[in-house]
């Protein structure tokens, strides 16, 4: 199976690790993510006003690119890896589904593009793993069970809110936990899993981000998490850098590594994973300490 795939800006720079790992994980599980030949920024944040259309145009162009590639690959799906891209593309798409007049107008306006027909379905990589592949099949492909590794899956905001775009329960999501269990990991239940990391406030109000992260990681820590996994490059960044500051200020007494779910999947599904494990000594140590390897 081949899926049209939209990376978005951050996965090509600070979020590179996520993309590299996810593309390999896809191969290991028997599918392929085919990057759209050209794409622009999704817009990052969905414009919440009722009267500004211009902000939706970049996402619309991406939907049209997906429509073009979808014809070749015979699918109407577009896969994203970044939570924010998922959120924006899905909200824009839904806005057109609910307001055909807006779609009509935008098609008239963008007269250098083919019309967007409104049929693309935006899905996140996690949905491919969970729905199209499934935890059972993932379990069969595990080469290194993550036995005894205590993992705290952190969702953040953008995959689950607003409700119209959520692909899992808004208050107690289970998709990441089920996948992690399939890898043999011990999944921690953190009540802060759907709380915000502070998002772009890292630019203008770092203190707020520190507060948000402190609340999240304090519980991770008290529950004994070895690692926090997230699908979002901004959550990954905020949780990591805020922990550094919190640690320096003595507000937390331990830093928990924050990595992408795809990185953990790659470690668990790759036959000879020594190469990868050397970048994640803390995982290697845990697995060996507790007889996992």
């Amino acid at each position: 199976m081949e899926y049209p795939y939209y990376p978005g800006c951050t996965l090509k720079t600070t979020g590179k690790k996520d993309e590299e790992a996810a593309l390999e994980v896809a191969k290991l599980l028997g599918f392929e993510l085919k990057e759209l030949p050209t794409w622009t920024c999704c817009g990052v944040v969905y414009n919440l006003t009722s009267d500004v259309m211009a902000d939706h145009l970049s996402a619309t162009r991406t939907l049209i690119r997906a429509q073009e590639m979808g014809r070749e690959l015979n699918t109407n799906k577009l896969v994203t890896l970044c939570s924010m891209c998922y959120n924006v593309l899905k909200q824009v798409n839904l806005m057109y589904k609910n307001n055909p007049d807006k779609l009509y107008n935008v098609n008239l306006f963008m007269d250098t593009e083919e019309d967007y027909l409104g049929n693309i379905e935006i899905i996140h990589f996690l949905e491919v793993l969970y729905r199209d592949i499934g935890p059972e099949k993932i379990k069969e492909k595990v080469k290194t069970p993550l036995k005894n590794l205590k993992v705290d899956p952190y969702y953040g905001c953008m995959l689950l809110r607003p409700k119209s775009i959520a692909f899992d329960s808004q208050d107690s999501p289970h998709v990441m936990g089920d996948i992690l269990s399939a890898l043999g990991a011990k999944v921690i239940e953190n009540p802060m899993t759907v709380e915000c990391c502070g998002a772009h406030q890292i630019i203008t109000n770092k203190e707020a981000v520190l507060d948000c992260v402190q609340r999240i990681v304090t519980i991770s820590q008290s529950k004994g998490a070895d690692v926090i996994v997230t699908p979002c490059p901004l959550c990954q960044y905020n949780l990591t850098t805020a922990q550094k500051s919190l640690f320096e200020k003595g507000k937390i007494n331990q830093k928990i590594p924050v990595i992408y779910l795809s990185e953990l999947l790659r470690i668990s599904l790759t036959e000879n994973n020594e190469n990868y494990l050397k970048d994640y000594m803390f995982i290697k140590d845990k697995l060996e300490d507790r007889g996992g390897l």
Binding site: T14, V44, D55, H200, T204, P233
Partner: peptide, 29 residues
């Protein structure tokens, strides 16, 4: 809300902050 030409903001751009955060802050401010 934000002055994108200010020294403070430009320094943020040099840090390794994901560009999704920078774009979001600009779009909101």
């Amino acid at each position: 809300f934000i002055n994108i030409y200010s020294k403070e903001f430009i320094e943020k751009m040099i840090e390794e902050i994901p560009q999704m955060a920078i774009v979001a802050a600009i779009k909101k401010g």
